[in-house]
Amino acid sequence: MRLAFMGTPDFAVPALRALHQAGHEIVAVYSQPPRPAGRGKKLRPSPVQCAAEELGIAVRTPLRLRNNTDELAHFRNLHLDAAIVAAYGLILPQDMLDAPKYGCLNIHASLLPRWRGAAPIQAAILAGDSESGVTIMQMDAGLDTGAMLLRDRVALTPHTTATSLHDDLAAMGGRLIVETLRQMPRAGTPQPDTGVTYVQRLSREDGRIDWTAPASHIDRQVRALTPWPGTFTTLDGQVFKIGATAITTDMTQAVPGTVIDDSLLVACGSGTTLRITRLQRPGRGMMEAADFLRGQAISCGTRFGMEPSDA
């Protein structure tokens, strides 16, 4: 088929490569413009742009699509069979949705209608869902509301992280979009009205650990939000990033946030406990807890999450 591909982050790259390998004619790739990155703040192209240029595909990086008549005219003149969208980051106006022969198909990283919105991978882990997956959806004017064309699922375990689930679903998305195009034209299944959930864009503050929450919730928070936006707590006015944790069976009467042994076992809500297994102090890299403690002891009775004025 004659396609345009529209995506920006690492999640979209496997789908682009899968479509190219399947022999589809990808006549244009759309991606977010290069952004300043690194210490020097040099402009860095997106992962999708880098992959497209490696494959020899022309890349377009408009700042906006709405009310962009020149871009709409160019898009129409591509005479597409379909446009494939995966975490692109710009809203497509209706004229663009209608332009390809088979419309625009979205690779969404959840089992719709659960977790419509911007951060479905993190939301599934944070909520303690037993499964996640990918839905190939016929795009319409709503937010992830279009008819479902194809789905597949993967089980979530107590060890699933945002990184591992991201990689699993990215690969799954590539496989499913190739299969979907093989079956086109295909009638979609309307999404049910029940079980609809939304997730907003994540912010850094979402990563702040509330030690009064049960250990199970905090562990899911760490697994869901690492590496981005990252989870953190405070100690003596400094911010410590938490990279990994492990739930324990120990119970305690200690105040939540209190360190209760010499290897970072921490009291949480409802009498539960959690062991910090990876953390990072300001100005240093992420470290295993044992290595961290050799350089900076954190004694029993220390309480995370307190500002100096709270002591």
Rank of each mutant, 00 (worst) to 15 (best):
L78E: 07
A15W: 02
G174Q: 06
H217G: 02
L126E: 01
I177H: 13
A123Y: 00
G257S: 10
L92S: 00
P113L: 10
T69H: 08
V59W: 11
T302N: 07
T302C: 05
F232A: 01
F5W: 13
N106T: 05
A297V: 05
V27L: 12
A246F: 07
C268V: 05
R201H: 14
S130V: 11
E71D: 15
T245C: 14
W211T: 06
H79L: 09
G23D: 04
D310M: 07
K41M: 13
D291R: 05
Q191E: 07
G305T: 08
T212V: 11
A18R: 05
M148D: 04
L105I: 13
G174N: 02
G188K: 06
H159P: 00
T180S: 15
A155I: 11
A12Q: 07
L176P: 09
D193T: 14
R17C: 11
A297T: 11
F292G: 01
M148A: 14
V29E: 02
V255E: 14
A147T: 01
P93A: 11
P192H: 03
I136S: 15
A73M: 13
V199S: 00
M251F: 07
I247Y: 09
P33W: 11
Q238W: 06
W115A: 02
R66N: 14
R284K: 13
D291Y: 10
T234I: 09
H20C: 12
P308N: 07
T277G: 11
L279D: 00
V134N: 02
G243E: 03
Q296S: 11
S110Y: 02
V154E: 09
P47A: 09
